[in-house]
Design a protein around this nucleic acid. Structure first.
Length: 855
RNA sequence: GGACGAUUGGCUCAGCGGUAGAGCACCACAUUGACAUUGUGGGGGUCACUGGUUCGAUCCCAGUAUCGUCCACCA
């Protein structure tokens, strides 16, 4: 391939699409497997179903793709396990919302037709979101994409269901579950979000004042209609005598017993608790212990029903008000606390307040599964990065309640249980059929039930496929900590169970969430969301990727502002122009590195190798932010600001084969190192510079210890100091940057070779002149002819300031060296360093004072 | 009520037992031939507070305060 000259000084806006097509068509993403290394498999979360790319997905995707690209360059066969799942509430909600906009509901279609409709919509939006993800430059071989809803993976769902059922780990029972009256389905515990709300807390009297009566306190007065008992603590002296007696429940006119249960906290409220067994999990527990009747008083919409009171037909919140009013009118209310802050569960999807409700559901018995999932991390089979997040995982896994897996939706995997005409129950596995006359359970499975199968179902399980043998267990799961419980922990539960104790992945790498520029959570209602597509349009996919990767400290949220993306775009431009400069100056990318390297060459090669070594380490440790920071500063500061600048003189003279080769080498390696983060840009620059086929299939840069040369740091630091000082002097004297002035540098021996280079940068013209100003920078002297008079005041000000600083620094050093404790206990190198510092301060002070005197 | 984390320049965040860092923002100057999506120079922080350990603490320890997140059956 020939080298292509870069013409414009800006990165073209349209490199992404064509490049991605090129990679795809060339088969780079699937064809570069090198078999001498174990496969690197990465599990990726199913994209959301909102139909557009969310910034969180962009982050996920960027990091996953980054690792994949790096591993491929390192010679691993790196595989993504992509797919689309989300067979759950979210998907159904979206479609139902669309139907509602047309004044229709799913019931206008019937189950079969509705499911078909969701499929159509899903294919469309799924395709859209995949397209958007591709714009980020993913290196997925999408030919392996699988839908868990398709036949093959339904098989996995059937298989695991039957296995769990046969192992007594799935059961059906009537329990209190979280019910969303809007989505009309059961929810698992983690699909419920608890929020503090302003509620009420009221004291209510059961029974007549004249007779046996008791004051209870509740935040949910309307549920009194379903009370089956009142509970008190058995050791509560106030109520001991009442235990076993009965009180009259108002309106319902039923006598309910007063029972004793340890669960009741005598300190709280009145110390007497109403027991609404069918609408509260605690009450349900107590009711089970004491045989209290369970009365359901609401229908699935949260409307009061079946109480045979005037409240039937009222919405639950309306009923609450109404019940209190009636009680008040009847003199049954004691104190009322309003507002009363307490925590109430909301449906994660639609924010409706969840109604605990007694109903028949399917559950996974999690205790043994969760134990294994916890142990896998405890015994090191699976590592959580960063490890600070492990306690969260343990807390959840070790205290998990049984998982309600049935959903009263139409979209999803139907529960594979069939009921016979005589009450038979039959679990139908794959390749089995229920007998005629049997009817399938109407409910579908929780999304996460099938998502939990991801690491192996996408590889063909339950068949023992070649893929499964090769790629399971997978290597790394990269995802946000927000779905640690939803998805990650569930994959652990099922993976360990289905695969006979083999973990689904060895590392869980958790990143944080993307927040707005002030670190606030993004939300539509707050209006502070950002659109990744918009940023990609404006600044390019690479700029977005770089921004996200640069902000990705493990497990930590990152603030994202448009300015940061702009900054990343600037970085891209910088690299672009550095490459143009290299091309214009004949950078060479072939052949061995020359042996006649000067100190500047040795320095940049040393810095390059340090950067390769450290950035590689950081990438491997999922420290993306650190790796990016390192590369950024190497590229911009070391390479562009110093190496290129210091090389200009030599390059301008046209006798710089060594510099040309070193420059070509450094850029070549830099682009390899940066490729996983900025694939499009580096591909363009690298192929243009080297004429290579593609960076995607190039080798990862190799750290070369022989090129580390720390002695060069000191020399370069000296040169940097000289240049900075002279520039500062020029600046203080008001000399234009572009203006050449007569001047010369008198440097110590080790710098003589670079005098011309420095003078070139500082726009100093040698020749005969009478110095009108002098500077001393360490062992270097600088002399200038400023023709006119120099600005004495400015120079004095500067020197005085420097003098003060030097004196202060000197004092610090002196007091340390005079400190006997320090001298006795501090390590030698530290003492030596302080001594050096003192010496430098002394000479600085002497020099500055001398200069001041001459002014 | 538990768990985890945070508190560092105007903003967002790194960092570290040995004279405080970045990006952006700010001020001044500059249209120089890689780059104004730039360059050069500059200003700005007693590293939340209080104790302790240490020759030395922004860093380690304890406590306090504030904030954030997650978990939890407080009616």
């Amino acid at each position: 391939m020939s080298k292509a000259e870069l013409t414009s000084s800006f990165v073209p806006a349209d490199i992404e699409g064509p490049l991605y097509e090129k990679w795809l068509n060339a088969g780079y993403f699937s064809a570069n497997a090198k078999s001498d290394k174990p496969p690197f498999t990465i599990v990726i979360p199913p994209p959301n179903v909102t139909g557009s790319l969310h910034i969180g997905h962009a982050l996920d995707h960027t990091l996953q793709d980054l690792l994949t690209r790096m591993k491929r360059m390192k010679g691993f066969e790196a595989l993504w396990l992509p797919g689309m799942d989300h067979a759950g509430i979210a998907t159904q909600n979206v479609v139902e919302r669309q139907l509602a906009a047309q004044g229709k509901s799913r019931h206008d279609f019937g189950r079969e037709e509705f499911v078909k409709k969701v499929w159509e919509w899903k294919a469309e939006s799924g395709g859209a979101i995949l397209g958007q993800m591709k714009r980020l430059g993913d290196s997925v071989d999408w030919s392996r994409e699988r839908f868990t809803m398709d036949e093959g993976l339904s098989k996995a769902v059937l298989t695991i269901f039957k296995r769990l059922y046969d192992a007594d780990l799935i059961y059906r029972a009537e329990r209190i579950i979280n019910w969303c009256p809007r989505c009309l389905t059961a929810l698992s515990d983690i699909e419920v979000e608890h929020q503090e709300i302003d509620g009420e807390f009221v004291q209510i009297r059961y029974g007549e004042e004249s007779g046996n009566h008791i004051w209870i306190a509740t935040t949910r007065p309307e549920t009194m209609l379903g009370d089956g008992a009142v509970a008190v603590n058995p050791n509560d002296d106030r109520y001991k005598h009442m235990i076993g007696t009965e009180v009259m429940l108002p309106y319902v006119n039923r006598m309910i017993p007063i029972i004793a249960d340890e669960l009741v906290d005598p300190e709280f409220g009145t110390g007497a608790v109403k027991v609404t067994a069918a609408h509260d999990p605690n009450d349900f527990e107590m009711a089970m212990r004491h045989n209290v009747p369970m009365v359901v008083i609401m229908d699935e919409h949260g409307v009061m029903s079946g109480t045979n009171t005037q409240f039937d037909g009222m919405d639950r919140f309306e009923a609450r008000k109404s019940v209190v009013e009636q009680l008040r009118a009847d003199g049954r209310i004691g104190w009322e606390k309003r507002p009363y802050k307490h925590s109430v569960g909301h449906c994660q999807r639609c924010t409706t307040i969840v109604e605990p409700r007694l109903s028949m559901q399917w559950f996974v018995k999690v205790a043994p599964l969760a134990k294994a999932a916890g142990d896998a991390v405890r015994n090191g089979k699976v590592k959580i990065e960063p490890e600070e997040l492990a306690p969260r995982y343990f807390e959840w896994v070790d205290n998990m309640h049984d998982w309600c897996i049935s959903r009263q939706l139409w979209w999803g995997h139907r529960i594979p249980v069939w009921y016979g005409p005589n009450g038979e129950t039959l679990v139908v596995g794959p390749d089995e059929k229920a007998p005629d006359g049997y009817k399938q359970d109407e409910d579908v499975l929780d999304t996460w039930f099938s998502s939990a199968l991801w690491p192996f179902s996408t590889l063909g399980w339950p068949e023992t496929t070649e893929d499964l043998k090769k790629f399971y267990p997978t290597s790394v799961l990269v995802t946000g900590y927000d779905i640690l419980f939803f998805w990650v922990a569930r994959m652990m539960l099922f993976g360990l169970f289905a695969m006979d104790g083999v973990q689904p992945f060895h590392t869980i790498a958790l990143h944080g969430l993307v927040r707005d520029k002030f670190g606030k959570k993004m939300s539509k209602s707050r209006g502070n969301t950002v659109d990744p597509l918009e940023f990609m349009d404006k600044y390019g996919a690479d700029a977005l990727r770089f921004t996200l990767a640069r902000g990705a400290n493990p497990g930590t949220d990152q603030a994202l502002a448009e300015e940061w993306v702009g900054g990343a775009r600037n970085f891209a431009t910088k690299l672009w122009n550095a490459t143009r400069f290299a091309q214009m100056n004949g950078a060479i990318t072939e052949g061995d590195l020359p042996s006649d390297l000067n100190v500047i060459d040795r320095w940049i090669l040393s810095r390059l190798n340090e950067t390769i070594r450290d950035a590689d380490k950081y990438f491997e440790e999922f420290e993306f932010a650190k790796a990016c920071e390192l590369i950024y500063h190497f590229a911009w500061d070391d390479l562009c600001d110093w190496y290129l600048e210091l090389s200009k003189d030599a390059l301008a003279k046209g006798d710089a084969a060594t510099t040309q080769r070193v420059l070509g080498h450094v850029l070549d390696q830099l682009f390899r190192l940066l490729h996983p983060v900025m694939p499009f840009l580096t591909e363009t620059l690298w192929t243009s510079l080297t004429g290579g086929e593609s960076l995607v299939i190039a080798d990862w840069p190799k750290f070369d210890a022989k090129l580390i040369d720390n002695k060069t740091d000191k020399v370069i630091a000296q040169m940097q100091e000289i240049i900075t000082e002279v520039r500062r002097f020029r600046n203080d004297q008001g000399i234009k940057t572009s203006q050449k002035i007569p001047g010369r540098l008198i440097v110590p021996n080790d710098l003589t070779e670079y005098v011309n280079g420095m003078a070139f940068l500082l726009k100093l013209e040698s020749g005969d002149f009478t110095p009108s100003a002098k500077l001393e920078i360490g062992a270097t002297k600088a002399e200038f002819d400023l023709t006119g008079s120099i600005d004495v005041a400015a120079e004095k000000k500067r020197l005085t300031k420097d003098l003060e600083t030097a004196k202060k620094d000197r004092q610090t050093a002196v007091s340390k060296l005079e400190n006997q404790g320090f001298m006795a206990k501090a390590p030698e190198n530290v003492v030596a360093e302080i001594r050096e510092r003192l010496a430098k301060c002394d000479s600085d002070i002497e020099r500055i004072e001398a200069q001041l005197n001459t002014l």
